[in-house]
Write a protein that binds this DNA or RNA. Structure first.
Lengths: 342, 342
DNA sequence: CTGAAAGCGCTTACAG
DNA sequence: CTGAAAGCGCTTACAG
């Protein structure tokens, strides 16, 4: 198909080494030779074959990003940042969707382990420590979100316990006493859901409020329908909640929908807090109070750490804890007046 | 780093050809040899180097997907489907974000033109026919969304004129007479915005309603803030609209926010229709009436057509028009009762 | 059924 | 400042 270095060399009447020198902009090429080579390149429409270059260098210039699904805005926004950060360093990003099952087969088959990528940023979810440890032996790895086991690989996350505690404290500070939690998951022992639940419980304990298991509703996935269904369950309780801490914004937006459809007012009757700070929550009615992780910083840290590993850094696993901040908006702001959308 | 075919061959005491035969599961390998090779593979932890294989085959097994940004849910959902469709065919997807500027530099540098991908699915936006024609000479191309010029490359899209006409007719059918449009763009002559505007105008004309340029508001990008700002502009008119057709759901959700914040009721005072059918609109309050393109079909058609080209199909540019359907929800349903969210 | 050799397109010591 | 040659790891005619 395309022309190769050899073709260019032949046309320019020089060796491939010289063409390579010109292409890679090494000095020590005479101006005359350089322009002759340039001409040949233009004439043939030559562009370097990156696959060959990668084979030679022993790397592909591509990193993988394994996420549950792009359909969850938090991950889409994060992917956006990761791609941008990688591009700044002239790396490309291959995205793998794990469907939240963290299915080993998928990861294995999808190139993560087949040396087509030089490193992997992975949101682990259902993957266990053992599997990840094995993966790390093959491939530089950066974990996103939550530590799966002690010192498995580099990690970038926010302090989820503190974040959850602050969110719950904020609701308690509003004077609410029946504070529910939506998003519990029993899948893995160290998952994000568990640490968020822990922060929730700490806040309740500090406020001297008894933990009521009825107020903690699991969510199979973290989409709006799950939040909506969980909220319906909570509304069916004899003593329903007056506030809800949702483990992500999508669950919160689903819960919000259920509340409004049931004729309840938010925050007057039930206040809501989410996590992620996705754009949706800044334009919903009411707007959504949320814990905002610094996604740009998370993405940059992940890419930086991964490339350091790809470049041979041999150090014990590192942890970057990115900052987060509670964004108070209408869904917990009882001062603002109520409005009627329909 | 990892073991190569040669290492395995040496350990198993056979030639590399034989190892290759085993790895690729060719028949005609004696059971004894096969198991000896298998053992060596396990022992060395051998996995094939895809880069080398790709060099040999002259292709990378990777296709590119160039989108404005993953932060726009429609594109994130589409990317999700494209990745899934590609994976079914054992292809990987490299995502490029063009930032809506369709910037040539980015595309050029980001691998699209550097032979690291075997084909490209691209949402063209600001790219002109000339540039795309030049690209197609290098690389199999499938255009997403809108035809940029006559017969430039394979295209998959919905019938945007009809979709826009139907959306507008739906609003007119509600008895609205001041129907605004948000999302006009002057960038390219054949862009999606223009065909949607055309459908809008056709519907007005068919209903015998004069076209009022004051009711058509441009949007620089298609995010919620743009819709919110455009709606504020419309509300400042002496004779504000009683309905709005937004060129995508994000604009519609932004407009919705402005209306509710201004104390207006939707749809009682102003009815709204969007395009894209993103998940947000199914859970907003009120839920959003929208034109739903069949994203799965769009993604599958794009991947199928691209792979056909990658496999050498030499045919004139083809067009796939995917189905769409108007999803009527609360934002235009004047029959449903009004509820008060806050 | 298996082996030795060439070649995909590049880069990089090694000479000159 | 430039060239001839080896090699990255794979596959594939070509022999046997």
């Amino acid at each position: 198909m395309g022309a190769s270095l050899k073709d260019v060399a032949k046309l320019a009447g020089v060796s491939v080494k010289t063409v390579s020198n010109v292409v890679n902009e090494y000095r020590h090429v005479s101006a005359a030779t350089r322009s002759r080579v340039r001409e040949a390149i233009d004439q043939l429409g030559y562009r370097p074959n990156l696959t060959a270059r990668h084979l030679r260098y022993g790397r592909s210039g591509i990193i993988g990003l394994a996420l549950p699904e792009l359909g969850i805005p938090y991950f889409a926004e994060l992917a956006e940042e990761v791609i941008a950060a990688a591009e700044r360093e002239s790396w490309s990003v291959l995205i793998d969707q794990t469907d939240g099952r963290g299915d080993r087969e998928r990861l294995t088959s999808s190139g993560a382990r087949s040396r087509t990528i030089d490193g992997l940023i992975i949101s682990p979810l259902a993957l266990d420590a053992e599997f990840l440890t094995a993966m790390r032996a093959d491939l530089p790895l950066v974990l996103l979100g939550e530590q799966v086991g002690p010192g498995i690989a580099d990690l970038v996350a926010i302090d989820n316990v503190t974040a959850a505690r602050e969110a719950t404290e904020h609701l308690l500070g509003l004077g609410r006493r029946r504070v529910a939690a939506i998003g519990d998951q029993r899948v893995s022992a160290a998952g994000t859901a568990n640490v968020r639940l822990q922060g929730y419980r700490e806040a309740l304990a500090a406020a001297g409020i008894a933990y009521d298991p009825d107020l903690v509703v699991p969510a199979e996935s973290y989409h709006r329908p799950d939040g909506a269904a969980a909220m319906r369950l909570l509304l069916s309780l004899a003593d329903p909640p007056d506030a809800v801490f949702c483990f992500n914004d999508l669950l919160a937006l689903g819960a919000l929908r259920t509340l409004l459809a049931a004729g309840l007012r938010v925050p007057a009757d039930v206040a809501i807090v989410g996590v992620d700070d996705i754009e949706d929550g800044r334009f919903s009615t009411p707007t959504l109070t949320t814990v905002a992780p610094d996604k740009t910083q998370i993405a940059e840290a992940a890419v930086t750490m991964l490339l350091e590993r790809v470049n041979g850094l041999d150090a014990p696993p590192r942890e970057v804890i990115a900052p987060h901040a509670l964004q108070v908006r209408e869904s917990t702001n009882t001062v603002a007046g109520a409005r009627c959308p329909m």
